[in-house]
Write a protein that binds this DNA or RNA. Structure first.
Lengths: 148, 148
DNA sequence: AGAAAATAGTTTGACATCAAACATTATTTT
DNA sequence: AAAATAATGTTTGATGTCAAACTATTTTCT
């Protein structure tokens, strides 16, 4: 039997605990959907660049919930794979503005269907209202945590 | 201005994205509460051992949402810090059963108040019902993801 | 009973992430 | 205008985690 009946004691039903477990499982599942070719968080970076052309690395990093420095090797690889372009910003020579390439767009398009399908199973499994409520609460939670 | 008005495109409000961002923030906040002395996930391991004495490493790992192998260095450190005891199980010489020490109990007790206080601010911020709903949905989500 | 498969804990190697320190460029202060 | 402060991208070092391979045991199968 693989029945998991351990007690979490004081941590029982605390959001931090459930968040970590849920996130771990979700990341694993999304990674499968992405064919193991790109990490969920890295896919997010790509999407952010595609939807917000001309933004700086710092802005993208912040939106992705990652450290600036963590982006560097990822972007380097994206560039090497011809998924994005990076050029020094005219007005600020420290910054580099980034844009998606046509290959990048193709790459994204390749997985959008599967990702949406996965999300649809979550919507179906939780119920539409609950799914919406869950993202809403997660966003609200982020607001709360940012304020501390 | 630090206004974060980037578009997440197709990922907007997807649970995977919000989960990852929320989890990152929560882990950071809990780490602060724990005085930077122990990672949230490691504290969970300790709590699990305290509340489920005599369990094997594998069971604890699973309940904590971590890989078996990830536990090894953590437990080694816990042992060195006299927070837990590990002894070979009588009935299964592969297994090691673990118990919390009195120092371990003290360690837990030291942070219980602060952790509960943090959770209380989340309950207050989200509203009691929403907080309960959030953990419930996170648990439900885990069930869904495990079934895939 | 003996062989085969499964399980527990561990080690090793790869990699993602963060934090701090750094150089360069912008902005703010004086 | 000069000096101090802040911001951007980067490098480096440390650490946590996973996955795969390994040993030792246990369980299952025949």
């Amino acid at each position: 039997m693989t029945n998991n009946d351990l007690s979490y004691g004081m941590l029982d039903k605390m959001v931090g605990l459930e968040l970590r477990k849920a996130q771990s499982l979700a990341a694993q599942t999304f990674l499968q959907v992405l064919g193991g070719r790109i990490l969920p968080g890295h896919f997010t970076i790509l999407i952010l660049i595609a939807n917000n052309p001309g933004q700086s690395q710092s802005r993208i990093a912040k939106a992705a919930g990652l450290d600036r420095s963590s982006l560097v090797p990822v972007l380097k690889q994206f560039e090497k794979d011809d998924l994005i372009n990076r050029v020094s910003a005219r007005n600020d020579r420290r910054s580099k503005t980034m844009t998606i390439t046509s290959s990048g767009k193709k790459f994204i398009k390749k997985y959008t269907g599967e990702i949406q399908k996965l999300e649809d199973t979550l919507i179906e499994g939780l119920g539409k209202d609950n799914h919406a409520k869950l993202s809403e609460l997660l966003i609200q939670l982020q607001e709360l945590l940012k304020k501390r």
